[in-house]
């Protein structure tokens, strides 16, 4: 039931995404611009970390892509509510959890695809990283997307006025991006900022992906990143499921 329904809805949403090249490529545009126009500025700078500047920047851009893309995912449910499609599905016996998971999995697939695109473009620009590290990076993008998209859908269901959604997400996503050192490593930060950023879960994700990009797979940083990512994803899906089941009982 859950599997059947999730597959069915994933299929529907994936088709909708495939029909819209705009949706597929537009999300990758912002990180791509950073890659092309900001990346070259870093190549000669001492960043105080192992690996060259591309191994620092690309992991950050991958997570930026997931962060902004997935946190705005909730918009689609606001649209569906307005069209009456959400209620029409809710009145069928379809699994409530599938209504969430079908979307979230489509989102994860979309952002991993965009991440792959970004990495492909980064290669000719000078990125060198081991294949295993790159794949680990995609794993983190998937987990981050699942977590944030779940929360985004939950928030979109909760808000009474959809106009609040965009500003609310921006207000949350911007500090999350700055505090996790996505653009530049937090090793450059003064002590207080470094300490503050450790409270931000994404910081540990980006540090972990940077480790993987320099080929360190068995370090505490990577392990810690994996645990934080799994923990956050589990928590977010739980919150998302609860909200879905309560809001749409």
């Amino acid at each position: 039931m859950l599997l059947h329904d999730t597959a069915l809805l994933f299929d529907r949403y994936a088709r909708q995404t495939l029909r819209s090249p705009f949706q597929i490529f537009f999300g990758a545009l912002m990180p791509l611009l950073y890659l092309l126009l900001f990346g070259p500025l870093l190549t000669g700078l001492p960043l105080g970390t192992e690996g060259d500047s591309w191994q620092i920047l690309v992991p950050g851009l991958l997570l930026q892509l997931g962060l902004f893309g997935a946190s705005f995912a909730g918009f689609s449910i606001i649209m569906e509510k307005n069209w009456g499609v959400f209620d029409r599905m809710r009145v069928t016996p379809v699994s409530r959890l599938a209504l969430l998971l079908g979307r979230v999995l489509r989102d994860a697939a979309l952002f991993v695809f965009q991440a792959a695109l970004l990495v492909l473009i980064a290669l000719p620009m000078g990125l060198r990283a081991p294949l295993a590290g790159i794949l680990i990076g995609f794993g983190f993008v998937a987990l981050l997307s699942v977590a944030l998209a779940s929360l985004s859908y939950a928030l979109a269901l909760k808000l009474r006025t959809p106009q609040e959604f965009g500003p609310a997400i921006n207000t949350l996503a911007m500090p999350a991006m700055l505090l996790s050192g996505l653009m530049l490593p937090m090793t450059l930060a003064p002590g207080w900022l470094d300490a503050l950023s450790r409270l931000m879960p994404f910081r540990h994700l980006v540090d972990a992906v940077r480790e993987a990009y320099v080929g360190h797979y068995t370090t505490p940083t990577l392990l810690y990143g994996v645990l934080v990512a799994l923990g956050v994803a589990a928590l977010a899906v739980t919150v998302g499921t609860r909200t879905f089941q309560k809001a749409i009982a």
Binding site: H4, L8, Q16, R19, W83, G84, V85, T92
Partner: peptide, 22 residues
């Protein structure tokens, strides 16, 4: 106020509905 998705065709809406009912 109905409940149609503007991204879908008549056929796909009808087929999806059937599949939602198992």
């Amino acid at each position: 106020s109905g409940g149609l998705d503007p991204q879908e065709t008549v056929r796909s809406e009808l087929v999806t509905q059937g599949r939602l009912y198992g």
